[in-house]
Amino acid sequence: MSQLLEVSGISVTFDGFRAINNLSFNIGPAELRAIIGPNGAGKTTFMDIVTGKTRPDEGKVLWGDMSRNLVGLNEARIAQEGIGRKFQKPTVFEDQTVEENLMMALQNNRNAFSVMFWKPADVDMTRVAELAAEIGLANDLRRKSGELSHGQKQWLEIGMLLAQEPKLLLVDEPAAGMTPEERAKTTDILVEAAKTRAVVVVEHDMEFVRRLGCKVTVLHEGSVLAEGSLDHVTANQEVIDVYLGR
């Protein structure tokens, strides 16, 4: 099976602390994957490395059919390659409307000049409407996103990611601070998204992970501890030690 993203042997050290230690990780083109692990296991750092925010001390991040190395590219280039990232805290542009937020994320030329002369075509308007419907904000297009509820902001952010049409979606703790209903909807959105692209979800909440029903990777101290179905990894003695033994 050809891989979409292949992370091989990356390590990174902060001030002597080894945050990622010889980590290798693969994900296929249309796969939903959950990453779990205790605090400080290197989940967020892993995302930072893939998206170009942090540069690893060693190792490679190979991307796509061409197996292009992403290490050394800047965040914007990597995003243009088709990797979208959702932060732990909802980060939408609160001073702008939902529509503006989505428009900004639409997959178009990112060049400053073409952006300046860009006018929304009908296709774009339709796409924004579709996305808004998908994330349940069809009636809130004209509202400032700062007025939205916490959960709505999370969805808007996921919507913005989808608007980017990424091949890989990295989602950091999407369910944090959500009501049970909102969680259910979030699960639906993610599962739906994973039908056409790869989705990596970092999550603490086992219940949420269970609902995703996907392959799980357990990170511990910067490397992979176990991988498999949720039931498989939760039965693993090492995983139990790591989670409960502390």
Partner: peptide, 22 residues
């Protein structure tokens, strides 16, 4: 226009705009 959206985005959250590919 959208350019304005982007620069206001940069003002409010530079990193987010970067991860959007700008």
């Amino acid at each position: 226009g959208k350019f304005g959206s982007v620069i206001r985005g940069i003002r409010d959250n530079e990193a987010r705009v970067r991860f959007l590919g700008y």
